[in-house]
Amino acid sequence: MMSCVRATERMSRALDQQLSPMDRLQLRIHTLMCKDCLCCHKQLIQLHNICQKRSTFDSDSDLKP
C-alpha cells in the first residue's frame, strides 16, 4: 500500500495539475482504506477553495467608476 506521505504528496499535486489515471487510482484506493488521509484530502481541498475565495474577490470591478 502507498504510504501516507506519498498519498498526501499526490493530493497536494492534484490541486496544481491533473494526476495521471494511475496516480489518481492509487490515491483513491489509499484514501478508501486510510481514514486519516481521506480526512486530510478533504481538508486540503477545503483550504484550497477558501484561499481562492480570499484571492478571487474582484477588486477591479470595485475600483472602476
Binding site: S3, Q43, L47, K53
Partner: peptide, 24 residues
Amino acid sequence: MFDERAHWVSGKQPEHWVQPEASF
C-alpha cells in the same frame, strides 16, 4: 507528522473540521 513507515503519527492525524467554508 509521519512515523518511520511514513504513516500519520498517532495524535497528529487530521481531525474533522467544523464549517470550514464559513471560515474565510
